[in-house]
C-alpha cells in the first residue's frame, strides 16, 4: 500500500486522450439516436453511456491509479446499483408472465 501513498501524477496527454474519446462517443451517441435500431436502441445507447462512465471513473476520478481498497469501494457502489436496478426490473419484466395479469 505504501507505493500508492503518494499521488500518482497523470500526464496531461492521458487526460486529453480520454477527453477526445468522450467527445467522439458523444457524437456517436447523437448519431446512433438518428438511426432506428428497433429493440436495440436502448442497448446501444446504454452501452455507449457505460463506456463513457467507466472512462470518467477510471481516469478523471483516478480509480485506475488508486489502491485496491478504493477500487473495491468504487465497485461496491456499482454492484449495489445493479442490485437495485436488476431486481426491480425482474418485477417489471415478469409481471406479464402471469396470464391475464395487469401489466
Amino acid at each position: 500500500m505504501s507505493d500508492h501513498s503518494e499521488h500518482h501524477i497523470v500526464p496531461l496527454k492521458v487526460y486529453f486522450l480520454v477527453f477526445s474519446a468522450l467527445m467522439i462517443l458523444l457524437f456517436v451517441t447523437v448519431g446512433v439516436a438518428m438511426v432506428n435500431l428497433g429493440p436495440f436502441n436502448i442497448y446501444v445507447a446504454m452501452s455507449i453511456a457505460i463506456i463513457k462512465a467507466v472512462l470518467v471513473v477510471l481516469y478523471f476520478m483516478h480509480v485506475r491509479y488508486s489502491t485496491r481498497l478504493t477500487m473495491v469501494v468504487a465497485a461496491a457502489g456499482f454492484i449495489w446499483l445493479v442490485f437495485l436496478l436488476g431486481i426491480t426490473i425482474l418485477d417489471y419484466t415478469s409481471r406479464s408472465w402471469i396470464p391475464g395479469s395487469y401489466q
Binding site: 442490485f83 418485477d91 415478469s94
Partner: peptide, 21 residues
C-alpha cells in the same frame, strides 16, 4: 439484507415471480 425489500410488496401488484425471489 439488500436483496429482500420486495417482501413489503407481496400484495402491491408486484409480479408474483419477483415475490417468490
Amino acid at each position: 439484507g439488500f436483496l429482500v425489500w420486495g417482501h413489503h410488496m407481496f400484495v402491491s401488484g408486484q409480479s408474483s415471480y419477483a415475490g417468490i425471489v
